[in-house]
Design a protein around this nucleic acid. Structure first.
Lengths: 334, 334
DNA sequence: CTGAAAGCGCTAACAC
DNA sequence: GTGTTAGCGCTTTCAG
């Protein structure tokens, strides 16, 4: 365990040059270094198993080649998928990533941001847990570039970000059920603090109203999760026994709903249709497969990463807000 | 964007002391600092929004307070859950984590390790993709502490690690199906390169033989995934139409199997019983819920993290290998 | 083509 | 109680 790691100085001594020369060679700024010394340096570096100390480099360059990702919970499939997409794109562009889970708690967000700033991340991709103005203030104060993804922060709609427009997708979902003959279509919405859920339920209301079948008693609110999906669906079945369609604010909740309905003896989609939102991978793992309003999850992650890195590199951008669109995917539950 | 971050020197100047004093105060080594200067320093640090530059500190202390986690794929629920457990425990112990996905490819493992070494991680938790001796050699060469989790590496059985013993759990599963009257029990195994899969299928063979119902034609091999689970299950239904039980090497594959069987018109568990392995969260998301041989995923992550940090701190340990046990959890599919 | 020298922000002896 | 000093490993002018 007491093996000292080789440094540039070790290489320099062994080759008989100075570390400045070694530095230039190893950083490919070797136009004016003689091929012989260059090859010798490369050779010795390889023999010694030299790995540059990125801290020393970052200290001086003020860049870490790392971006931070702040996410509510990596075990939530939606976030895992987006995180993976970001990481892949970051790696492609020669960046590394550090993840921080916040469980939607603002204090955890702030400590994550402190951590990331201390590690000199070049930028941060931020999926907010709610009203996170103070977290953003921290980032601004320390002049760290950032990009918002998926979730709006009230009052911060003008920050750079990647958002998914849900209206058309949700409306298509409602219309799709209507065309299947469904009339009593309930909606399970997420918490009011999160703007995204507001948009989704509003689209539902609008289309239901247009179709002349809106009834406010059909709208239920939950903290989205599988368990909540089960509970609320049992509730709906009690309140509106002849309900024939349920649209959920996300896939996890919808999967819980499917479970509850099956247990209650409903046959999906014969007796009732259900629709989720997100299109996480596991929505296809079940049978019947979940009809859902699909977010382009991978594209969102990729776009966020690209946007951030462009901002970091001060590439002039016409628009720092990117809008993608959710789309209805009809599968087995409708 | 051009706001210079405050450093210790800024604080020192403003208070009228030197940065050494500031350093001691901020690191809580302030027994011999007068309360007045201490408070003044703390106050100014707060006003300036000072965040220590962890690189500068790490450069000198040779520690980063960070551990690396090398994992095949974070979108795989099993790994996401273990990663999250590791992260939580690490945070509790004041460590941060950096994740690297390898997609089970050895070259990606090696570049991940180089990255982590360059970032001076204090240790690495390693879920190997296969025969990763060279990756381990790199870690050894650079004197980086590491801990293996879940997967054995052939020839490296004696490295510190956290492993889950599957034998009893799998045998209990076979016996359980036998007691339900099942006799034609197939097994879907994972790839031979991964030792864990070898152990699981061997336990199956042993119990099947003991019960006098082993037939080698019932054993199928796949690269575990939902899709593979579907495909292999269709194959089994063709080969052995009167199969009445299938045990899978993991939950994802079993979920694919359940899907395939349902589509083929089998009723699970009336016509056929199935059992998975892992007990990932989503195994309870489906209906019927999956009977499975549960690994204590969270405990594995937690134990790995603790073990690693003990090794890093050179805490003398009686045993650097931790064995946990998988256990049959009977739910709806058996 | 290569060397010398300065310095990034911080810690840790050792003075005073 | 606090300052001085050196140096971690690296990059980057500027000389030569």
């Amino acid at each position: 365990m007491k093996v000292k790691k080789p440094t540039m100085l070790d290489i320099a001594n062994q080759v008989g040059v100075t570390k400045a020369t070694v530095s230039m060679v190893l950083n490919k700024k070797d136009e004016l270094i003689s091929p012989e010394t260059r090859d010798k340096i490369l050779k010795v570096a390889d023999e010694l198993g030299y790995i540059p100390n990125s801290f020393a480099r970052s200290l001086i360059t003020k860049k870490s080649g790392t971006i931070g990702i702040i996410i509510p919970d990596i075990t939530n499939p939606f976030f895992a998928e987006i995180a993976r997409a970001i990481e892949d794109e970051a790696n492609r562009l020669q960046y590394n990533v550090i993840f921080c889970n916040t469980d939607n708690q603002v204090p955890k967000e702030e400590s994550a941001i402190r951590l990331l700033i201390g590690k000199l991340v070049d930028g941060v991709i931020f999926i907010a847990g709610g009203t996170s103005e103070t977290s953003l203030a921290l980032l601004n104060q320390h002049a760290v570039s950032f990009v918002l993804v998926d979730r709006y922060i009230p009052g911060c709609e003008d920050y750079p970000g990647v958002y998914c427009m849900s209206d058309d997708g949700v409306m298509d979902g409602v219309r799709h059920l209507y065309e299947k003959g469904r009339r009593k279509i309930a909606y399970v919405r997420g918490p009011r603090e999160l703007r995204v859920f507001e948009y989704r339920v509003n689209a539902y209301k609008e289309m239901m109203t247009t179709l002349g079948i809106y009834d406010e008693r059909y709208v239920y609110e939950v903290l989205p999760s599988l368990e909540a999906g089960i509970a609320v669906t049992e509730q709906i079945a009690r309140d509106v026994p002849d309900v024939d369609g349920i649209i959920y604010c996300n896939d996890m909740t919808a999967m819980g709903g499917l479970k509850a309905l099956t247990r209650l003896g409903y046959h999906v989609p014969r007796d009732i249709s259900i629709i989720g939102y997100d299109n996480i991978k596991i929505s296809q793992f079940i049978e019947p497969e979940l009809t859902t309003v699909a977010q382009p999850i991978a594209e969102m992650g990729e776009a966020a990463c690209n946007l951030l890195i462009n901002i970091i590199n001060e590439v002039p951008l016409k628009e720092q807000k990117i809008f993608l669109y959710a789309e209805l995917v009809v599968r087995g539950t409708s």
